[in-house]
Amino acid sequence: MPAAKRLKEQLGFSALAVLTCLAIVPVLAIVGMLAWKGWPALTWEFLTQPPRKFLTQGGIFPAIVGTLGLTTGTILIALPLGIGTAIYLVEYAGKNIFTRVIRLAIINLAGVPSVVYGLFGLGLFVLTLKLGRSLAAGALTLGFLTLPIIISTAEEALLAVPDDYRHASLALGATKWQTIRRIVLPAALPSMITGAILGISRAAGETAPIMFTAAAIYIPSLPSSVRDQVMALPYHLYAVATEVPNVPDHMAFGAALVLLAIVSGMNLIAVAIRTRMRLKRMR
């Protein structure tokens, strides 16, 4: 290879490597700074006490509970619908216009901005179905927002199950549904769970969809039913960062750190399951 060409190649690829570092490292540094600044706020009191004096003192316990409640609701709605849809698409759907329409709908749902889901939830659940701003309305909105992610990851998981298994089961006289339930679903389960956790962790961090459907800035007591309005960590963080005056810096960083820890924790679990599965398959 001529020297000029070699130089060009080395320079080019080095530039790309530098670019990669420049893009990733500062972001990691800023996240690291968040951990550093938020860490002092993470006391037992901060995590387990309700806020006092309009968020300027006390803890964030109701916001943590609210986010966990919304997340649970999201799971209850998105998981059955999402996995059911994926099973239909992979195992039953023929190549026809009906299937094409469903697929197009899913693609478009995945691209609908989260704030539009918020408007939709406000119109349908809060006002038309008269659920009011509540845990239920928020969970339904987040559930629908998460649905396309759950569908596509569950679909991938089902497609990864070899057809050999299906054929073997059918040839033994199993019905289609028996084959799906006893062979296909167990084999697809770990990657389905991974995908579901990734999707749901996204819902846990969403703010815009719950702003008009579920979240309130300041409710020191815990919700007693699904019809109650709740505090939620992402909305709480938004509020203390922009709308509520005189919140000490470390409390805002602390709330951000807790939110990040919950979401990243879920992601890490998902990645761990996937890695374990890969290793198992290699053995």
């Binding site: 050999d164 298994y165 073997a168 033994l172 006289g173 062979i183």
Partner: peptide, 14 residues
């Protein structure tokens, strides 16, 4: 298929 069983080319245990 319960009466007429089948063994495939590639071994395919579950």
């Amino acid at each position: 298929r319960k009466k007429v069983g089948m063994v495939f080319q590639k071994p395919n245990p579950f």
